[in-house]
């Protein structure tokens, strides 16, 4: 990819009232070579069609009133984005609150596009009895789907295990339609699963922090151009963001960077999501 081509890739990072991750997400996207504009929700939606793809970042749109993300889905800007995705296959990355918006908008899982087929329900309560269902910590993800199945994870090999932070109170992927889960498995739409540092996927509170069905942390639509994920890859896009106490390669790398600013700016594991988005944008505009 030429630098010129990369510089021409433009995504709109949609900012709702209550979004709070737009600037760090913009920085992560720009580090991957994507031009990223913060696009306020109350601008003319027609301006959205000029962009090659979209990001909906984390936060608490509309203060999470009623349910996380649901008020935002009713905005005309989401209808326009839906049209652009459906008609032109533009890529969309929804992170945390963005994932909640995509699910409530019927873009994810998208088995019947436009229908709400899942929920991001409140996390299961901590079984140790602590009050408080908002979970904010580092977890590990396994890239589950086949190479290239999801355009937004195309730069990761299947089985790739990476650390990433979560911060949500309503992040439990669930559905009352068991057939939908079977279909997601059959379609290879489950992109990320919560796992331990060795890649073991188990439904325990330590590994599956919110009690999600099938340990699901991220799902793509059947076409693979829309990804909804609860963890925050933008907060793991630079080595400096990683906690030194991480075990394995990334913890070792972080510890080795002490005092070295250039090394701190090296890509973290989450950068691959934005690298994948860049490649998806290139495909989309070609």
């Amino acid at each position: 990819m030429s630098e010129q081509a990369a510089a021409q890739l433009r995504v709109a990072l949609i900012q709702f009232p209550g979004s709070n991750c737009e600037w760090e997400t913009k920085r992560a996207a720009e580090a991957a070579g994507i031009t990223c504009d913060v696009f306020r929700w109350n601008r003319d939606p027609a301006a959205l069609v000029e962009y090659d793809g979209y990001i909906i970042g984390g936060g608490f749109s509309y203060q999470d009133r009623i349910r996380s993300g649901v008020i935002a889905t009713k905005e005309p800007i989401v209808a326009t984005m839906f049209e652009q995705v459906s008609e032109f296959g533009k890529p969309v990355l929804g992170i945390c609150n963005g994932a909640q918006v995509l699910v409530e908008a019927g873009l994810i899982p998208g088995l019947n596009p436009g229908r709400v087929e899942m929920a991001l329900a409140p996390n299961y309560p901590d079984p140790r009895g602590r009050i408080g269902d908002f979970c904010c910590r580092w977890v590990y993800l396994k890239h589950k789907c086949a190479p290239g199945r999801c355009a937004l994870s195309s730069q990761m090999p299947t089985g790739y295990i990476w650390p990433v932070p979560i911060a949500h109170g309503e992040g439990r992927f669930t559905t009352r339609d068991r057939d939908a889960i079977e279909q997601l498995r059959a379609n290879d739409q489950i992109v990320f699963q919560y796992c331990d540092e060795n890649g073991q996927v188990a439904d325990t509170p330590e590994i599956n922090p919110n009690g999600a069905m099938d340990n699901i942390a991220g799902i793509c639509n059947p076409e693979g151009n829309v990804l909804a994920m609860m963890p925050h890859p933008e907060r793991a896009s630079f080595v400096r963001q990683l906690p030194a106490e991480l075990s394995g390669q990334w913890g070792t790398q972080k510890q080795a960077t002490w005092g070295d600013d250039a090394a701190m700016r090296q890509p973290g594991p989450g950068r691959l999501v934005f690298d994948s988005l860049r490649e998806a944008l290139l495909v989309s505009v070609c």
């Binding site: 929920a119 329900a121 339609d177």
Partner: peptide, 16 residues
């Protein structure tokens, strides 16, 4: 009952 982006608001029937 929320069944689609433009239908319903107060309940997501997949967990409520």
């Amino acid at each position: 009952v929320t069944t689609a982006r433009d239908e319903g608001l107060l309940v997501n029937p997949h967990f409520q």
